[in-house]
Design a protein around this nucleic acid. Structure first.
Length: 275
DNA sequence: TACCAGGGGATTT
DNA sequence: AAATCCCATGGT
């Protein structure tokens, strides 16, 4: 690892769970070292001396300025997840188990444009298929960061791609939706920088204007691209979880932590095995 | 409101 | 080999 530096993380931080929690599709893992890509940078990070929740020291591939300037925010390290877990007094046994199982997950602050395109692509795909499409897009239209990493292509870099080009990345019927999103950003109808200043509801409404973006995808973009942790996207897995809670959606009651609890539950549903 | 077509890769049978 | 599933949406 180049420019290795040791950093300390004093909160829940489980790289494996973060990678497997279905919010991020552009990570790699080799021998316990994880590689994340954010905009035009990548980070390699490896546990050094940690406890069961991942609290402890890590070796990272960046310098202190980049860690503090970029990656602390990317990993949402200014939020205390251990406190959030302990404060949500959960009487529902299923939810309590899910929160325990998901401890260590954090909501990453990923690039809004990448999240918009990624979650448009995600509809009716499983996670390996989403990874494949996103990686194909990055390798074709992004910039090479190093021998095995590409930046996610910006709207400008995608200016001239055709729907047929997009279909070659296995986007299928979603290709026109992504083309629509590119057009909206390029002509200014969708200004992602300005969206960041909107209220949760206004942001949600603005995202719904994009063809192919419905309630679920808009909520994913709010949560994973804009850090709106009160948003709890409901997909087929969460829908099953709601059934297991007696058919009543438990997430709104968690307020600003709803999206975080949702992520614990999603991870739990995917990893606990069949009922 | 309810149903259904829409890629096609991944997973299960 | 065939069926089913997959972090849904838009149109009818």
């Amino acid at each position: 690892m180049d420019n290795a530096m040791t950093i300390s993380i004093q909160d829940d931080f489980d790289l494996r769970k973060i990678a497997d929690s279905g919010q991020c599709f552009r990570w790699e893992e080799k021998d316990g070292t994880f590689r994340f890509i954010h905009q035009v940078r990548y980070l390699e990070i490896c546990p050094s001396d940690i406890d069961a929740l991942g609290t402890g020291t890590y070796t990272v591939s960046c310098d202190e300025a980049e860690w503090n300037g970029i990656w602390r925010d990317y990993f949402d390290l200014d939020r205390n997840y251990a406190e959030i877990r302990q404060n949500c007094k959960c009487t529902e046994p299923f939810l309590a188990k899910a929160i325990e199982a998901g401890a260590g997950i954090r909501i990453l602050h990923q690039d809004p444009w990448e999240m918009l395109v990624t979650f448009i692509i995600s509809q009716r795909k499983n996670i390996p298929a989403i990874r494949r499409s996103v990686q194909l897009l990055a390798a074709r239209y992004g910039n090479r960061i190093d021998e095995n990493s590409y930046s996610f292509p910006t709207p400008e870099e995608l200016r001239d791609v055709t729907i047929e080009d997009l279909k070659e990345c296995s986007l299928g019927y979603r290709a026109p939706y992504v083309r629509c999103a590119i057009d909206r950003v390029l002509d200014g109808r969708l200004d992602l920088k300005k969206l960041a200043d909107l209220s949760n509801d206004d942001l949600f409404s603005a995202l719904l204007q994009v063809e192919g973006v419905g309630v679920k995808v808009a909520n994913c973009v709010c949560l994973f691209g804009f850090g709106r942790t009160s948003r709890a996207p409901v997909d087929v897995w969460i829908s099953r979880a709601i059934e297991l809670c007696g058919g009543i959606d438990p997430f709104p009651a968690f307020g600003d932590a709803a999206g975080i609890i949702q992520q614990y539950v999603f991870y739990y549903m995917k990893t606990r095995g069949t009922i």
